[in-house]
Write a protein that binds this DNA or RNA. Structure first.
Lengths: 216, 216
DNA sequence: ACGAAACTTTGCACAGCCTGCAAGATCGCC
DNA sequence: GGCGATCTTGCAGGCTGTGCAAAGTTTCGT
């Protein structure tokens, strides 16, 4: 009678796996946030999640990977969104649009990501692993961009666009965490992309649109 | 007391140290280029340089550091050059100008750097360690830029400029090595910075300034 | 419900990276 | 030659990460 339970998603086994995975990830973030990356061992993280340290490495290939989250999946979804943007939109604007949906995903786990970015800020070794975590993801991205603007794959533009926008987005995310989310991530990303689209001109000390309050 | 320098340069001891250092670095590059990063141990590198593996770690804090060269020193010289550029030059152009002198330094060890970039390309784990190797150097750079354009240190522009130009330069260096130096590094850097200054517009299949040979 | 099959967890052994410490070798200088 | 500073080396040890096989758990067919 019992509705033949679909094993793929609702299965007990998968729920357990997901629970341990998040338990390990959150324990890692919490401990590293408190004590620093070098002061936390895999054994301590595993103990906090009630599994053996060997099991830790069944879930994450390295200590770092437990901290940064699944950048590859995020990147894959980003590529998919990018492919959906109408092809007549210029590449830079298309990337910004596709990022908009990634930003929404981050907002859904706001606290987690703020903590994560805080950990990364205080342990800069992790910084390079954010956005474009691997050469593979990076190349998939450049391929999509190359196809979009219609240039050969060995042209410099696609690679330049992806690496530069990746850097800009990562920086925006760090600034977002630095202010504990006071300014919205979307705002900070917009600001960075506006500067990029404008050719990175010097910002005047006095802003034209709104005068600063610097005395005389 | 003797304020006159310890024989910093001509002494036998310093010559020996320099020789060991370059022996370790070149042995590391040669071995890793041939067998791959994971297939080469510190012990093998040390043996190739005729020192103990313990001595290796007296020269380099990690295996990676023997491969990437002294990015910190390079970065420091870059900051110095940047400070010498007249302050009325816009920041992006100033960075490009200062990079010109860095490029000349790389040209002086052309073969070494080509090999190094080749190794980095084939072992992408090393990629993040090029340019802006540390948070410290990065911050020194942003401080100089902030002072140059006259904005507070927490403004987003200086950090954005340094991280973006760093990414662009790194990419240019990789492309340089990918073609074994067929196109000059200066050319590739110019191309990237032109695109940045123009706001990263889509490169049309037909170029406006110089008509391409595409028919019709 | 029972048991086989598939999967997960765990312990163990082991290679490799990296660090602190102390002894010994080498170099600079008088 | 001899003293002090510096460099090299071996040793012990902790941590990361991997392969393997035993033990435990879930799934599925009958």
């Amino acid at each position: 009678m019992t509705p033949d339970s679909p094993p793929a998603d609702g299965g007990l086994r998968d729920r357990k796996k997901r629970r341990t995975r998040t338990a390990l990830a959150t324990a890692a973030l919490r401990l590293v946030a408190e004590h620093g990356l070098d002061q936390v061992t895999v054994e301590e993280i595993s103990a906090a999640a009630d599994v053996s340290s060997r099991t830790f490495f069944n879930y994450f290939p390295s200590k770092d990977d437990a901290l940064i989250g699944d950048q590859a999946a995020l990147n894959a979804r980003f590529v998919a969104r990018l492919a959906e943007v109408p092809p007549e939109v210029p590449a830079l604007a298309a990337v910004r649009a596709a990022l908009g949906e990634v930003i929404e995903e981050l907002q859904e786990d706001r606290e987690l990501w703020l903590l994560r970015m805080d950990v990364v800020t205080r342990n800069p070794v992790l910084l390079p692993r954010l956005v474009s975590a691997g050469a593979e993801a990076e190349r998939a991205l450049t391929d999509v961009v190359a196809a979009r603007v219609g240039v050969p794959a060995d042209h410099g533009f696609p690679a330049l666009l992806t690496t530069v926008t990746g850097a800009a987005f990562r920086l925006a995310a760090l600034r977002w965490a630095a202010t504990a989310g006071a300014r919205s991530l979307a705002d900070l990303v917009d600001e960075a992309f506006d500067a990029l689209a404008a050719g990175l001109p010097d910002p005047g000390p006095a802003r034209p649109s709104r005068p600063s309050r610097t005395p005389s």
